[in-house]
């Protein structure tokens, strides 16, 4: 399914060692490679401590890897430069900015004229269900709405790649399902290329086209799974009824090697 897509993001033998050549030397990531195609959603799943956050920071250009490299549209990422938009568990909305001013933040950083960025933000807000809240401040919004605003802020400056790091894990389960469904829909509509870092296997299967399973520290790629479930059946509530969902769920859990005291 993804073979014919242009590669937007590539990780090539990325390695990360902290405190190199000291007694506290820790290799967080031994070697990770993967490719993300245009319009693809790639899940990265691993046990806690597999270096997910480290990998996330490397992709975002916030942390230079010890070895290997990240390529965005064939160009090597040297530093954070707005090529990647990300969304975390924390919404990171600026409390002194209204919804619309939070959405335009990335555009403002890039020096997009105020009028133009306002228009972009206005369209996003209207299209994705926050109309009427443009001038509300984050403190007055629910957790789900705040994450929606954070997502729009990410979309607004059309980054090449969107990184999602457990973006729904702080939400209650109803809000989470609703937001997952909306985010999938929006990502598909806009043909965004997305890397989703999560420890929630179900969430990864629901949202992604492919899943890369990472081993525990030092992290390396253990396996890659193509989901292969028709997009029309991808609704968070429907997908759980698919036999393929359960099959993948069990396989990936097994691969994560997490032991349950039965």
């Amino acid at each position: 399914m993804q073979e014919d897509r242009a590669t937007v993001l590539a990780a090539e033998n990325v390695k990360m060692t902290f405190n190199a050549d000291t007694p506290e030397e820790v290799t967080a990531i031994s070697s990770i490679s993967f490719k993300l195609g245009q319009g693809e959603i790639l899940g990265i799943v691993g046990p806690s401590g597999c270096g997910k956050t480290t990998l996330f920071n490397i992709i975002a250009g916030l942390l230079p890897p010890t070895a290997g490299m990240i390529l965005v549209n064939g160009k090597r990422v040297q530093e954070a430069s707005g090529h990647v938009g990300y969304m975390l568990q924390k919404d990171l909305l600026l409390p002194w900015r209204s919804v619309i001013d939070n959405v335009t933040l990335g555009l403002q950083v890039r020096g997009v004229p105020a009028k133009e960025s306002k228009e972009i933000a206005d369209n996003l807000i209207k299209a994705y269900g926050l109309k009427g809240f443009e001038h509300t401040y984050p403190a007055a919004l629910s957790g789900g709405m705040r994450q929606r605003v954070a997502f729009m802020r990410t979309l607004a400056f059309s980054p090449d790649v969107i990184l999602l790091d457990e973006p729904f894990s702080a939400l209650d389960s109803q809000t989470r399902l609703l937001l997952q469904a909306d985010v999938i829909r929006i990502i598909r509509e806009r043909n965004c290329s997305v890397v989703l870092v999560t420890h929630d296997v179900g969430e990864a299967i629901t949202m992604c086209d492919r899943i890369v399973v990472i081993t525990s520290r030092p992290g390396r790629v253990k396996s890659v799974h193509t989901i292969g479930i028709d997009p029309s059946l991808r609704h968070p509530l429907k997908i759980r009824k698919q036999p393929r969902f359960n099959e993948l769920y069990d396989t990936i859990w097994d691969e994560l090697g997490i032991q349950f005291a039965a």
Binding site: A80, G82, G85, Y86, L88, L94, W96, V109
Partner: peptide
């Protein structure tokens, strides 16, 4: 995390200062 976010948006240190640090 705010500082990191600004960095990832490609903000200069001065922009981060003006748009996040001062108001905060």
């Amino acid at each position: 995390d705010y500082i990191k976010m600004m960095k990832s948006l490609g903000a200069s240190r001065l922009q981060t200062f003006r748009m996040v640090v001062v108001p905060a």
